[in-house]
Write a protein that binds this DNA or RNA. Structure first.
Length: 874
RNA sequence: GGGAGCUUAGCUCAGCUGGUUCAGAGCAUCUGCCUUACAAGCAGAGGGUCACUGGUUCGAACCCAGUAGCUCCCACCA
């Protein structure tokens, strides 16, 4: 088998096996007798491109699904994409602008044509990229949140919630995105600290020569001021109670009101009130029945109501109005000031609070079961610390603004008559009959549908239900729902996770998934978030081309415990690639034995014990692995597997089982090696699907499709011989002792050594043959006495001697032994101090005391040994 | 302003309800090796007063209090 190259070539391998898996429909799932295991993918934006976050997230999902498939579950991983209303619409608008087309020049239908065209052109690219990663999704189930059935389920949900009184229409302060020209939910607003200025502006008090000075960060909103507010307890301003002031520039007379809300310490203790453009001012306005002046257009320019600067952008006005105020002598001072400003999550425009009529979901009652079932661990969070912020949000949940002034999305099923009456219904006809129930006065041509669409998350909160055609194909959703694991980022815990849980209880009466695994954010080595603008995000496709998909998968998983950010380092992928190569070479070795099998050869003792040990070791690691998986410690499961392969299998087992150069191998050892290797490939498969399939198929001829490792049964842990494992550890120590002697004294491996052992306590001889084989010993014999003029080391109180071979540094030997002796003496002292402490002796449990006594006696005998050794050198 | 979490080897992290290994892993580093599966490798080695200060205890990386630093989430101080 010399033709097999010593470097594994992922490129030549990966596409071949993915095509094979597709051809044999190994990822396809239909309901059957088996227990289902379901994961729904967090749907990426339909026009998105694969980034490192997706890589991490989908690798984890694939690992979970592949293992479940091997465990015999009916594994189903549903892929799909999200229409991403605002994000996609923004991209389409941008693309049209480049072609010289303005959105406002197009009809709604025409715009949607463009949007669909864009979606079809870019949509699904990301799903193709996931195939490169090896994602074992059931691609026949690919869903899109604007698929016809999915669309219907969203609309039906809206109607249903409306009928239940959970959806209402109301005029409230909302977050307005002046760039995308739409309302946003609170969650879509990102608050960032920015350096700004605090302007102190003085207003004339009517009927006096007095002025009142306020402080504001947004001087342009002066145009909408309808009051000045002071704290009623503030002694400094008692004289202003009941007075009126004049808004500068526009010269509007406004009342001076009092309210506890005003902080006396901040600024001047006087607040200007602009009810139309600030959440708090709005509340003050309602309370004190103030006039509301909406002085801003939807695009952030000043409206007619502002009187001045009409049509100018708000930020330009901020500069201009300060100049004008200054000229008029109204600016008292300007201070540097850090404050938090809200930005649109999608357009990054500064959000303007704005009074607006929108659709809302009333959340308080709906969210109750969702809160309870996370807190009581019916739905488990990994890591659990996220329960805290979940609870915090849920307990203070506010109503959800779900209407967006966009075209791309699910259009709100509300129909308006010219007089403002409306009905919520699927079709205009139904709406008409509802409206006409009371009085037959409307004609169908009178009705117009609400132009707004729904928040993207109003469709994705149904994802675990609607991907199974949830509201229509009952048997499907009954089988697959609830799903098992959800793998997602903590950033969308409120946007998505919480709302899916709410929808799950509302529409299925049950949790949508049992476990939520929160991944961290993928950052670069310096801890910066990976982003396009920083250019610090590698292209996943390049990475996979360079290190192989398996290498990248392993690299991603190496250092990412649940919920921890991953500081991505390409070196990790390299480590993954090296690991793949290690496995590949182990395969080459085992494969090379095939033609050396000699049925007449008996199994050497060294190989026999190696096989026994390896089986026990495998079983004990398998137990660990399963446990790690149960706790979602995926990276630890990988590390256990890594060490199983590299250390236990390659470094120890193969070396022990390996026949001596030039000789054949017995059948038993060969068969056992293949069996162990196959089991190892199985536990590796979720991490490295391509490599394992390649080797799996090279090991023997498998039945087409059914023989794939994808559906090979996950190994079952057998009995673990703990005694054998312990004896191996002793054996390994002896091997290392001998290797150290060789290394320290430059003794070549080729040179056979004679080993003599002075037994001071029982030492099982199980591994003797393996020891001879592994360490190239010419003989191993017991001795009653010290062997003079020899290297020696101690394992478990037993002394091992290797006679001096050539010119040896006796003085150096003596020094080494002396150092060890001094150390042991010191150690003994500390143990005895502990034992002589009466309090310790009286209070420590028996087991601990015994442990200390054992340490004491061990140290004593070791000292004896060392002293004798020193004497032997003289 | 409120809440949560973190601080253990150069780096990324384990360390379960305090007690068998003078604190573990992987990577990185250093030394020696192209030894007949693998230099994408092999054999070894070094490296930590477990953030700091006090307390509880026979005993603390682990429990308690305080200090410092970092991170995240939520929140309408203009």
């Amino acid at each position: 088998m010399a033709e097999i190259p010593s470097k594994y070539d992922p490129i030549a391998t990966e596409d071949k096996w993915y095509a094979y898996w597709m051809e044999h429909k190994l990822f396809k799932s239909v309901p059957d007798e088996r227990t289902p295991f379901t994961i729904v993918i967090p749907p990426p934006n339909v026009t998105g491109v694969l980034h490192m976050g997706h890589m991490l997230n989908n690798t984890i999902q694939d690992v979970l699904v592949r293992r479940a498939r091997m465990l015999g579950f009916n594994a189903c991983w549903v892929p799909g994409t999200d229409h991403a209303s605002i994000a996609t619409e923004a991209k389409v608008v941008q693309k049209l602008r480049k072609e010289g087309i303005k959105k406002s020049d197009l009809s709604r239908d025409k715009f949607l044509e463009h949007a669909w065209e864009w979606t079809h052109k870019h949509g699904g690219i990301i799903l193709e990229q996931l195939k490169k990663l090896g994602a074992s999704c059931d691609w026949d189930r690919t869903r899109f949140t604007m698929d016809e059935k999915y669309y219907d389920s969203v609309i039906d949900t809206f109607i249903d919630l409306y009928k239940k009184g959970k959806i209402y229409r109301g005029e409230r302060m909302i977050n307005w995105d002046p760039a995308a020209l739409t309302a946003l939910s609170d969650e879509e607003v990102i608050h960032r600290e920015i350096n700004s200025k605090l302007y102190y502006v003085k207003y004339k008090v009517v009927g006096t020569d007095d002025f009142v000075t306020i402080a504001t960060t947004r001087p342009e909103t002066i145009l909408g001021d309808t009051a000045i507010c002071i704290n009623p307890k503030d002694e400094r301003f008692k004289h202003l109670h009941g007075k009126r002031a004049i808004v500068p520039l526009v010269n509007r007379e406004v009342p001076i009101i009092t309210d506890d809300y005003v902080e006396m310490e901040f600024g001047t203790g006087c607040l200007k009130v602009t009810p139309a453009h600030d959440m708090n001012d709005f509340l003050l306005g309602e309370k004190h029945k103030l006039e509301v002046i909406n002085m801003m257009n939807d695009n952030g320019t000043i409206s007619e109501a502002g009187q001045l600067y009409v049509g100018m952008d708000r930020f330009d006005v901020r500069v201009k109005i300060v100049e004008d105020l200054q000229a008029a002598g109204h600016i008292v001072k300007i201070e540097e000031h850090i404050n938090k400003v809200g930005f649109s999550e999608r357009s990054d425009a500064v959000v303007e609070p704005r009074l607006s009529l929108q659709w809302w979901v009333s959340m308080k009652e709906l969210s109750q079961p969702a809160l309870e079932n996370v807190m009581n661990d019916n739905i488990r969070f990994f890591p659990p610390k996220f329960k805290n912020s979940y609870r915090n949000w849920m307990e203070n949940v506010k109503d959800w603004c779900i209407s967006r002034q966009l075209w791309w999305g699910h259009r709100i099923p509300a129909w308006f008559a010219p007089d403002g009456n409306f009905a919520v219904a699927k079709t205009a006809e139904e709406a008409l009959s509802i409206l006409n129930e009371k009085s037959n006065k409307y004609d169908i041509t009178d009705l117009t549908q609400d132009p707004d669409v729904l928040d993207t998350w109003f469709s994705s909160w149904l994802w675990p239900i609607s991907v199974f055609d949830g509201f229509y194909k009952k048997e499907e959703v009954d089988y697959y729902y609830p799903t098992n694991d959800l793998v997602t980022a903590p950033e969308i815990m409120f946007f998505w996770v919480a709302r899916m849980i709410i929808a799950g209880y509302e529409y299925r009466g049950e949790l949508p998934f049992r476990n939520v695994y929160y991944t961290g954010i993928v950052r670069d080595k310096q801890g910066r978030k990976m982003s396009k603008s920083l250019g610090n995000s590698p292209d996943p496709l390049d990475l996979m081309a360079k290190h192989g998909a398996d290498g990248v998968r392993v690299g991603m998983l190496f250092s990412s415990p649940a919920g921890n950010d991953l500081l991505f380092d390409e070196g990790l992928c390299e480590q993954g690639r090296n690991f793949a190569n290690k496995i590949w070479n182990a395969f080459r070795l085992v494969q090379s034995w095939e033609e050396k099998v000699d049925a007449n050869l008996p199994q050497p003792d060294s190989a026999k014990v190696a096989v026994q040990w390896m089986n026990s070791k495998f079983n004990s690691v398998l137990e660990e692995l399963n446990d790690d998986y149960d706790k979602f410690k995926i990276n630890e499961a990988l590390m256990s597997t890594y060490k199983l392969v590299w250390d236990d299998f390659c470094a120890w087992y193969l070396e022990m089982a390996k026949p001596t150069y030039g000789s054949g191998i017995d059948k038993k050892t060969y068969d056992a090696s293949i069996q162990i290797f196959e089991k190892i490939l199985k536990v590796l498969h979720p991490f490295m699907p391509f490599l394992t399939e390649e080797i799996w198929q090279l090991i023997s001829n498998r039945e087409a499709g059914k023989g794939s490792i994808c559906i090979a049964p996950w190994p079952v842990a057998d009995a673990i011989d703990k005694n054998l494992l312990a004896q191996f550890d002793t054996f390994a120590e002896i091997v290392i002792g001998i290797r150290n002697v060789r290394k320290d004294n430059n003794i070549a491996n080729k040179e056979a050594l004679a080993l003599q052992v002075k037994l001071n306590e029982a030492a099982p001889s199980l591994f003797d043959a393996a020891l001879m084989h592994l360490c190239n010993l010419s003989s191993k014999a017991d001795t009653q006495d010290k062997v003079p003029n020899s290297f020696s080391f101690v394992v478990n109180n037993n002394e091992y001697f290797i006679p001096f071979t050539a010119n040896v540094d006796v003085e150096g030997e003596r020094k080494k032994i002396n150092e060890e002796l001094q150390y042991t003496l010191g150690f003994l002292k500390s143990v005895e101090a502990k034992l002589n402490n009466e309090k310790f002796a009286n209070n420590a449990p028996a087991a601990v005391l015994e442990g200390e006594r054992k340490k004491q006696s061990d140290a004593l005998s070791k000292i004896k040994v060392l002293e004798e050794k020193l004497a032997a050198l003289n």
